[in-house]
């Protein structure tokens, strides 16, 4: 028997068709067709049924469980509970949380999307409590958070929980607030009042955050630094190019700094080299030839901008810059 025939014969779905004798209309692509056997949903084999149910979120699955015994068996089976998809508002229900809690040992993947809930202070807490529910599930594989407005401190708390080693946390389409403290010193807070300052928006990227960073023996400050590096990495990956408003604000601020410290503003090979090194480290190769002293900063990302600012400030406060120019 040829190999292709063996391959195809293995794939017989054994569907059971029965004829209703009705001609089916063919909207869109088709022309009128003759009568043909009509496939009914209850005749569809188990694999196909599971394929459909894999696209149903938990609350909808619970409704569908009531249709018949067969659907109930499929929808409450461990493999079907393996991936849970939930909306933020679903977790407002105490009884739903209980329902999930009873079945949590079957769960391997969670997709929790928040629809960017604003103005609900408990949304972050709910998210945190929900994720923590799974920290002792030994086969937990991944948690994906999407469309949330989350604070970096909440994110940090989450990464410090003890999830199984293999469990991975992914973020996508997230607005992470309160990231400034990981980008610049606290004394700089007053200088960072600008649009969207302090928030990092993760677009369609899928960013992985290290879990279980609760390293024993580390001080609170050291842990904060460790998490800060993660935030910087995330911010750098997701930051969008500056717009004209931001560029203008940055130019003004840098010029003011230079003026206050009596530094000649447009010269200094040393300064140029320092800034170029920053660009090289934090931006793509296309920015290497930017004339940074002339402040052609159109393509810089906000994170780099803050690094530039911080470095300038540190240099100026230490007096190094004046000595080198």
């Amino acid at each position: 028997m040829p190999r292709y025939k063996r391959k195809l014969s293995k794939m017989d779905h054994s569907t059971h068709l029965h004829s209703t004798g009705e001609a089916q209309p063919e909207p869109g692509q088709g022309r009128p067709e003759p009568s043909h056997p009509k496939l009914h949903f209850h005749d569809v084999h188990d694999i196909a049924l599971d394929l459909v149910f894999k696209h149903v979120s938990l609350p909808s699955a619970c409704v569908l469980r009531r249709v018949c015994k067969r659907w109930n068996d499929h929808l409450d089976a461990p493999f079907q509970l393996c991936t849970l998809a939930l909306l933020n508002k679903d977790l407002l229900r105490e009884d739903l949380r209980e329902y999930i809690k009873e079945r949590r040992n079957f769960v391997r993947n969670i997709l929790y999307y928040g629809k960017y809930v604003f103005g609900q202070e408990d949304a972050n807490t709910r998210l945190y409590q929900f994720c923590c529910m799974f920290q002792n599930v030994s086969d937990m594989q991944r948690i994906v958070l999407s469309e949330h407005n989350i604070s970096s401190s909440m994110l940090r708390k989450l990464t410090e929980k003890t999830f199984p080693k293999q469990c991975r946390l992914f973020l996508t389409k997230l607005l992470v607030s309160d990231v400034d403290r990981y980008l610049i010193p606290e004394s700089w807070y007053s200088l960072t009042i600008e649009r969207r300052s302090g928030s990092t928006r993760i677009g369609n990227l899928l960013v992985e955050i290290d879990m279980n960073v609760n390293v024993e023996g580390k001080t609170e400050q050291e842990k904060e630094v460790m998490f800060g590096r993660q935030v910087q990495r995330m911010a750098h990956a997701c930051a969008t190019p500056m717009d004209e408003y931001e560029i203008c604000a940055l130019k003004t601020r840098l010029n003011r700094m230079v003026f206050v410290h009596n530094v000649p503003g447009s010269s200094g090979a040393w300064l140029e080299q320092v800034l170029k090194d920053i660009l090289k480290q934090h931006e793509g190769p296309e920015f290497l030839f930017v004339n940074v002293v002339q402040l052609e900063l159109g393509g810089l990302r906000p994170l780099t901008v803050r690094l530039v600012e911080r470095l300038l400030m540190e240099i100026m406060s230490s007096g190094v810059l004046n000595n080198n120019l």
């Binding site: 909207p27 949903f41 998809a85 993947n109 999307y113 991944r142 994906v144």
Partner: peptide, 27 residues
């Protein structure tokens, strides 16, 4: 797999495909 999970639940069906699948459920 994480991309596949997101696609399964969060991505809209593209317009062309919606029209293509605008047929009888049995089909």
């Amino acid at each position: 797999e994480e991309d596949e999970i997101i696609a399964r639940f969060c991505e809209e069906i593209p317009e062309w495909d919606q029209k293509f699948l605008n047929v009888d459920q049995a089909v």
